[in-house]
């Protein structure tokens, strides 16, 4: 039983370290920001999840109490990582909107990409109709 706990904790720590390292190697190796965004926000978060699971098992094994702090930290991180990635991607799109808009393929519809162009006319009117008080 002791060996099993030690083995699981050790492998979780090693897996966490490997995933954190892979995330940072991806941050160095990948060619531009939109691809670079993948490595830290996914691999690093998963690696941190491994370290937190190891810590939780370790204190469950050593003290016999299930500590809830790690669950709190991992839930917070797993919730905030996609939000952070979304904000960074959107700020990047807005900072370089002139060059990125030329690279984008046409949408094939009568209005453009939603981050760069204004709201299409009929959708704006539909939104206005929803906003207006009834009766």
């Amino acid at each position: 039983m002791n060996f099993l706990f030690e083995f699981v904790i050790s492998s979780l720590i090693v897996l966490g370290g490997i995933f954190v390292l892979v995330g940072s190697i991806g941050l160095i190796k990948l060619p531009d920001l939109m691809t670079r965004l993948h490595a830290p926000t996914k691999a690093t978060t998963l690696g941190l999840g491994g370290a937190l699971g190891a810590s939780m098992l370790y204190f469950l094994w050593g003290e016999g109490t299930l500590s809830i702090h790690e669950v709190l930290i991992s839930v917070f991180l797993f919730l905030t990582a996609p939000v952070t990635a979304h904000f960074i991607a959107k700020a990047h799109l807005h900072l370089n909107r002139d060059t990125i808009r030329q690279e984008l393929s046409p949408t094939g519809r009568d209005h453009g990409w939603s981050t760069f162009d204004t709201v299409p006319k009929e959708a704006a009117e539909a939104g206005k109709a929803i906003d207006q008080p009834r009766g």
């Binding site: 920001l33 670079r36 690093t44 990047h92 900072l95």
Partner: peptide, 11 residues
């Protein structure tokens, strides 16, 4: 770019 640095600090 600037956002690369923000991403690096976040990581």
């Amino acid at each position: 770019t600037l956002m690369d640095r923000v991403l690096a600090v976040d990581t």
